[in-house]
Design a protein around this nucleic acid. Sequence first.
DNA 1: CAGTGGTCTAGACCACAGC
DNA 2: CTGTGGTCTAGACCACTGC
Lengths: 232, 232
Amino acid sequence: MANPVYIKIVEDIKQKVNSAELKPGDTVPPEAALCKEYGVSRMTVRKGLAILVNEGYIFSVPGKGSYVQKPEVNKYTLLYDEMNNPINSVDKARLLEVNIIMPDEKLADELQTTRNKHVIMIRRLFYTDGAPVAYDNKYLLYSKGMPIVEKEIEQATFQEMVSNSMPIFALKKKISISAQMPNEEIKRYLNIYDELALLVVEQKLYNNENKPIGIGVTYYRGDYIKLQGYSE
Amino acid sequence: MANPVYIKIVEDIKQKVNSAELKPGDTVPPEAALCKEYGVSRMTVRKGLAILVNEGYIFSVPGKGSYVQKPEVNKYTLLYDEMNNPINSVDKARLLEVNIIMPDEKLADELQTTRNKHVIMIRRLFYTDGAPVAYDNKYLLYSKGMPIVEKEIEQATFQEMVSNSMPIFALKKKISISAQMPNEEIKRYLNIYDELALLVVEQKLYNNENKPIGIGVTYYRGDYIKLQGYSE
DNA sequence: CAGTGGTCTAGACCACAGC
DNA sequence: CTGTGGTCTAGACCACTGC
């Protein structure tokens, strides 16, 4: 028993929850009671409860007590890297086009900017074993320090493209995943002759004031990519 | 400034990280220094640092110090509910088949069971506005207390199917997402006459000893579903 | 050895719930 | 009012690191 006391408290309560001895909505014994039960000071008990709060097992209401939380059954941790996925990896990227453009109305709207502000457009192809596996299209609000040198852009992930002008920690991202059929242009780029589905991943990057700074769509050959996630 | 001191400490350090004044790998000032700087006791400083550890900003090494963490750029929180997604919801489910079967070798292997153990097979269709939008296929290890009453199964999510026999908190889940073309059977079920891609979501459920207790695959019409996630 | 973080105590005062 | 959780103190001892 090298474990600290608060870990014991955490494990005991987890076990009670997992065995349904404590059900969602039930009250956890008050801190004072746990102090007595384990013969420890209140700070030690609170450290244990803090861990349970963090892991989503319980929540506390000041003045009332601590309660067993309803589990968040629909939340998963998804691992997504533009150029690496569990069944395949991009080994080469080729720049099709990089341009500074004025956004059309739809794009200006999505980026919460105006039509007279510069936007960098990047179009790339990703390759695995010499074969094109994904078509990638990004739009970035132009700001100083951005890489517009082709060499720098070619192999960069979305994060890396903006990280020159802002620290990566301040980035918020949204992602949305869907399945589509390829249009003629994408069929050409990805050498698709038969029927093949695309996995489409849209990314939107925001700064820490929640202003969008870039959007991107990557179209993956369905036989190339598999995204994976987990919960607990 | 109604905020407690430790929140102030958290915000100050976050700001330093976000502004690149502290870069990944840099040392955070030792606790004793922060105590002096803020004129508070060590426990208060430690509470602040604990939050930063939890949020992935820093990590601590006993005997050495605390360091700024490299951000986990590839982790997203994905919201996935079999019957609800951001652009649509299932309003009706129809049971195609429920059966107790003996698994073939591949299935027995995936469920880490043997071919003489009972497995429940469930096949369903999900509907939105009267039209079929997804075909769902699940295999559950049979255990006592499981719902094999058709009424109960029809509208149940994967979690709910097993929650009678085990508390939902003890569930671990893996999910994998891909895009495929429908086969003839699925085309029939989902009324697909043209070219339409499927978004395929595989789920695998484990108990808290990491033994698989069920696997399921749901085939969604690509024009029906969009999965969404976020980071930060 | 001194400096670091990890654990823990035995108090304190506060704001808030509910009676 | 009592009981609850939230914040905070001023110490303590430990194990580990690096010199």
